[in-house]
Amino acid sequence: MATTDIPTLTLNNGVTMPAIGYGVFQTPPEQTIASVETALAAGYRHVDTAAAYGNEREVGRALRASGVDRADVFVETKVWVSDYGYDATLHAFDKATGKLGLDTLDLLILHQPAPDRFDATVDAYRALERLLADGGVRAIGVSNFMPHHLDDLLARTDVVPAVNQVELHPYFQQRAVQEADARHGVLTQAWSPIGGITFYPGWGGDDRRSTLDDPAIAAIAVAHDRSAAQVMLRWHLQQGRSAIPKSVTPSRIAENLAVGDFVLSDDELAAIDALETGVRGGPDPDVPRPDFFAREIPEA
Rank of each mutant, 00 (worst) to 15 (best):
V47Y: 15
Y53M: 03
G54R: 00
G54M: 01
N55D: 12
N55K: 02
N55L: 09
R61D: 01
A62L: 12
A65M: 05
S66L: 09
G67P: 13
V68K: 11
V68I: 14
D72M: 09
D72K: 13
F74L: 12
F74I: 08
V75I: 15
V75C: 13
E76N: 14
E76C: 15
T77I: 08
K78S: 04
K78A: 08
K78W: 06
V79K: 01
V79E: 04
W80Q: 03
V81K: 01
V81C: 04
S82W: 01
S82M: 04
Y86E: 05
A88P: 00
A88T: 01
T89H: 05
T89V: 06
L90T: 00
L90M: 05
H91W: 05
H91Q: 10
A92M: 06
A92Q: 03
K95M: 11
K95C: 10
A96E: 02
G98P: 03
K99L: 15
K99H: 10
L100P: 07
L100Y: 02
G101H: 05
T104I: 11
T104N: 09
D106Q: 11
L108V: 07
L110D: 02
L110Y: 11
H111A: 04
P113E: 03
A114F: 09
P115D: 05
P115C: 13
D116W: 10
R117E: 11
F118Q: 02
F118I: 02
F118W: 05
A120Q: 14
V122Q: 06
V122D: 06
D123F: 07
D123L: 09
A124Y: 04
A127T: 03
L128Y: 12
L128T: 08
L131I: 04
L132C: 03
D134E: 14
G135K: 03
R138G: 08
R138F: 04
A139N: 06
V142A: 15
S143V: 08
N144I: 07
F145R: 00
P147A: 12
H149G: 10
L150D: 06
L150V: 10
D151N: 07
L153N: 05
L153F: 13
L153R: 12
R156C: 09
D158P: 14
V159P: 11
P161I: 07
P161H: 11
V163Q: 12
V163N: 14
Q165T: 10
Q165A: 14
V166T: 10
